[in-house]
Design a protein around this nucleic acid. Structure first.
Lengths: 140, 140
DNA sequence: TTTTTTATGTAATAATATAACATACAATAT
DNA sequence: ATATTGTATGTTATATTATTACATAAAAAA
């Protein structure tokens, strides 16, 4: 959703330090068609930074996750750029079992339902992650 | 949800082979208060089986997952016994960030919402996993 | 300019999971 | 009963994913 310039601006506005490894990791994730794994990020990072080690990739991933520009797809151990603005408490992903494409989808009703259903059980929901497997229109 | 005898019966009915490692792994997962990790299962399994190796645990876990008696909590890399009968295409988990307890919850509305929202986008949902983090009533 | 905080570099290792192949066992067919 | 076939296990090795720990560097604040 965000272009690089926008992200740079947002970082400046919030005084988040936009270092080289962070910027390069964001670019790698953003330019990846499908969710990308940490060690594949690391491999690509080696084209930009001399002999990067796992913590370099993981730290940058965490930074972007924290600010909601990158999501982790739990069932894939992989990371994808956020496509719905950078602030939300929960996300929904449609994962194509065939081509591996992941569509981030905002089901706006979910939060209401969560509240209704979980507060009845006196559970206080703070964030959620919904991963839906199936077939995308290209593959079905 | 199921007691051991019921599960034994169901296995016999379906001609699923209920071997020792499978039974012991099921017991370990069932008796665990919170979701349990594969290598913790393996450690406990060592009390029952001589020097078990990772594949022994993982194979048994997979067997029970396949038949929906055990779920994997993706965000925890951990496994928990199913509490809602052994046949459903999707599951919802309320994960307490404080005590680690995980409540399996059937939000019956979810499937309808999924269908509405995903078929609009011509994505065919087959199964889903919803993990909701928050605070349980004990901890909030 | 000094101090403090935050980020990175690097080596080591922890935690999670699977591949490959030999052996054993159970179910089925003969 | 026995041979055949398919399924499960035992075992070694290794792949994959992620973190700890500590030294150094850079930026921000005092």
């Amino acid at each position: 959703m965000f272009k690089e310039e926008q992200i740079i601006k947002i970082c400046k506005q919030n005084k988040w330090r936009l270092t080289e490894p962070r910027l390069e990791v964001l670019r790698i994730i953003s330019h990846s068609k499908n969710p990308i794994k940490a060690y594949d990020i690391l491999k690509k990072l080696a084209n930009k930074i001399k002999n990067p080690k796992p913590p370099t990739a993981y730290r940058a991933i965490q930074f972007w996750q924290k600010h909601n520009f990158v999501h982790r797809i739990e069932s894939l151990n992989a990371y994808q750029a956020c496509s719905h603005g950078h602030s939300h408490a929960g996300a929904q992903f449609l994962i194509c079992d065939d081509c591996g494409k992941v569509i981030e989808s905002n089901l706006h009703e979910i939060p209401e339902i969560l509240k209704k259903n979980t507060e009845n059980k006196t559970f206080k929901p703070l964030r959620w992650n919904l991963e839906i497997n199936g077939l995308c229109n290209q593959c079905s």
